[in-house]
Design a protein around this nucleic acid. Sequence first.
DNA 1: AAGTTGGTCAACCGCATCAAC
DNA 2: TGTTGATGCGGTTGACCAACT
Length: 250
Amino acid sequence: MGRQPCCDKLGVKKGPWTAEEDKKLINFILTNGQCCWRAVPKLAGLRRCGKSCRLRWTNYLRPDLKRGLLSEAEEQLVIDLHARLGNRWSKIAARLPGRTDNEIKNHWNTHIKKKLLKMGIDPVTHEPLHQQLLSEEKAPSNVSQSQESDSGRQCVAENDSTMNSEANSSDDSLLLEDINVCKNESLVNSLWLDDEAPLVDASWEPSLEENDCAWLLQDCQDFGIQDFGLDCFSDIEFNVLNTLDMGEKH
DNA sequence: AAGTTGGTCAACCGCATCAAC
DNA sequence: TGTTGATGCGGTTGACCAACT
């Protein structure tokens, strides 16, 4: 026989997480670490599926997550990694510390895709669209979705000399400047040491010494820090983090 | 002011893979 | 060795919000 089921579908709550549920999950993970997600809902007192808990933690509650829009450099890195890896968002996310696969996937679908299309670049193949049409005429049946091929691994910037001349508005010129960041192969290659080895330690342990957890601390303040069991933080640390946060807003 | 449209993003669903039995 | 369940991943949905008409 196999293992016990992850959760009985009955009585499992769905939909947006409440602050109370977040508190419970954070408390549990910080106290016990990430073990078997199957047991988390029961032990943490949550009426959620373990899968849902894992998703909530990895995509939203992890203290090492960055918040806010991707920077230009991060966006360019995503484009290049996508050209090499395709829609393997988890692999891509592994090379962007503090970013989640879900976040990158969303950003790709809402921003980068349109940006590339506007530039006349196919977001799937990373080839100029007119070139894409030509190749489709030659081989109409097989537009490869695989990004493993050498052509798929081309950096977008390598195509910029053949980018169509339509991308010449002032906005597009700026975009072209952005995309040329990719010409700096050393930047990309430095992040491309090993296909399987993530830049961030996969075995993440809750570490509240990182500055990136400022948002979590803010949440803790909103909830009341004792509720999180994070009273190890001094007022000074909070003040420093708040100052940093204020500075970013200006 | 009300309705419509489009953008954003958190969360769910279903599949693939791996591991336990 | 086959079956079953856990986990992880990518695709998709839907709620929410802001801009526009």
